[in-house]
Amino acid sequence: MEISKINAEGDETCEHLGLHPEAVARAAQRVGALAHIDALAQLFAAFGDPTRLRILTALRDGDLCVCDLTAVLGMTASAVSHQLRLLRNLRLVRSRKAGRVVYYRLDDEHVLNLLAQGEAHVQHY
């Protein structure tokens, strides 16, 4: 019994919809339970941008100010600030002020863990 086949465009198509109703019900329940799926998509989009990922990686070892980040990344202060604003809005980084200097750090251990898990996955192959 053929369950799937490749169509003329090279895409796999399903011959029998609902072949595994229990598995479909479990998956639908999990997808429906993710009320915050848009926020999750934005989080992963932030990690998908090389510049933002470089900023997050630079902050792994501790606090840096915008000037430090411009030196590390070879970018203008306004470009770095723009990316930091996006990362702060997604709660990936936080800031603290010391006099007139604003320092940035990873928001919490979850961000560090996401970076570490991503690196481990990429290096696994």
Rank of each mutant, 00 (worst) to 15 (best):
M1A: 04
I3N: 11
A8W: 10
A8R: 06
A8F: 10
E9L: 14
G10Y: 06
D11N: 01
T13V: 13
L17S: 07
L17C: 08
G18S: 09
L19W: 03
L19A: 14
H20V: 07
P21S: 08
R26H: 02
R26D: 13
A28P: 01
R30K: 08
G32F: 03
A35D: 05
H36Y: 14
A39L: 15
A39E: 02
L40V: 09
A41V: 11
Q42S: 15
Q42R: 11
L43K: 11
F44L: 00
A45P: 06
F47W: 07
F47T: 05
D49P: 08
P50C: 02
P50N: 04
P50W: 00
P50E: 12
T51W: 03
T51G: 14
L53K: 03
R54Q: 10
I55Q: 04
L56E: 03
T57Q: 00
D63F: 13
L64S: 05
C65I: 05
V66C: 08
V66N: 00
T70L: 02
A71H: 06
V72S: 13
L73W: 01
G74N: 07
T76M: 05
A77M: 03
L84N: 05
R85P: 03
R85L: 03
N89I: 12
N89T: 15
N89G: 10
N89F: 00
L92Q: 14
V93D: 00
S95N: 12
R96S: 15
K97G: 12
K97D: 10
G99F: 14
R100Y: 06
R100C: 11
Y103K: 03
Y104A: 07
H110G: 01
L114P: 10
E119V: 09
E119A: 07
Q123W: 07
Y125S: 12
